[in-house]
């Protein structure tokens, strides 16, 4: 027994490219800016100018360092927001039905007027995608900008989530994972899009595209291929001046 739709017509979500994310937090703030004055209650900031400012955000950027023995360490910026899971535990635990997954596109939403703010959905989410707004006492989460993506008052080309539209590096892609021909499905297939914490059984829709290998960590023995490009001229051509002379003549 579940209140999750068995399947959804579309599976809208994000493909986030960890190879490109520079960790600029642009998506975080534009998300806050859009969402504080749109869907649902404003995203408040408590003690905003004080000692312990705490606000509600729907998207956060972590920075990790990854190191294996004897190699250079690498840093990876990691955006974290709702993955709009297919088996979303946050929906099934909700006692009021405020949390739901939309039949038509799979977006997981909170109907704030039904939310009692019990927090259980946040407890059940492995990804920390839900935060209670302290001023309003309701659960907030990424809406996949439902009030943008279908919005007739927004030009067609801008009908995408605020975070995607604003990302300067182009690290965030929005689309339908149910359509194998969509941008996100293709990207995910090409780049080996990852599911986060598959062992949690949530079947996330969003995918993370892994960082590409780094030349200073996973060395590819380049130097043999590259060495000819630096073969010294002096030896084969009898000195720099004579090389220069010939080369100038050849131009």
């Amino acid at each position: 027994m579940t209140t999750l739709p068995q399947s959804t017509e579309r599976r809208l979500g994000l493909a986030i490219d960890l190879d490109i994310c520079v960790g600029c937090h642009a998506c975080v703030i534009n998300c806050k800016e859009w969402n504080t004055s749109n869907y649902g209650a404003p995203l408040s900031d408590m003690d905003a100018y004080g000692a312990n400012p705490v606000g509600t955000f729907l998207n956060r950027i972590h920075t990790f360092e990854v190191k294996s023995e004897g190699c250079n360490a690498q840093t990876v910026h990691f955006p974290r927001s709702c993955l709009h899971c297919e088996d979303a535990p946050c929906v099934t635990v909700c006692p009021t039905g405020a949390s739901y997954k939309r039949q038509e596109d799979g977006i997981v939403l909170v109907n704030e007027s039904d939310c009692i703010g019990c927090g259980l959905c946040a407890w059940s989410c492995p990804y920390g995608a839900r935060e209670i707004d302290r001023a309003e006492g309701v659960m907030k989460k990424c809406t996949l900008c439902i009030d943008r993506i279908y919005n007739d008052n927004i030009p067609q080309e801008d009908r995408m989530p605020a975070c995607v539209r604003t990302c300067p590096a182009g690290a965030r892609h929005f689309g339908d994972f149910a359509d194998p021909e969509s941008n996100v499905s293709k990207l995910s297939a090409e780049r080996g899009g990852m599911e986060l914490m598959p062992e949690q059984g949530t079947k996330p829709v969003n995918r993370y595209l892994p960082p590409r290998p780094k030349a200073d960590i996973a060395t590819d023995g380049d130097i043999d291929v590259l060495a000819p490009f630096l073969a010294p001229i002096e030896e084969k051509q009898g000195g720099f001046i004579s090389w220069l002379d010939k080369a100038l003549e050849a131009i």
């Binding site: 960890l18 972590h62 920075t63 990790f64 360092e65 990854v66 190191k67 294996s68 190699c71 360490a73 690498q74 840093t75 990876v76 990691f78 990852m194 599911e195 986060l196 993370y208 892994p210 960082p211």
Partner: peptide, 12 residues
């Protein structure tokens, strides 16, 4: 993080 395959991960 999905980064486990690359090495030891820690929050920076």
């Amino acid at each position: 993080t999905g980064l486990g395959g690359l090495g030891k991960v820690r929050l920076l």
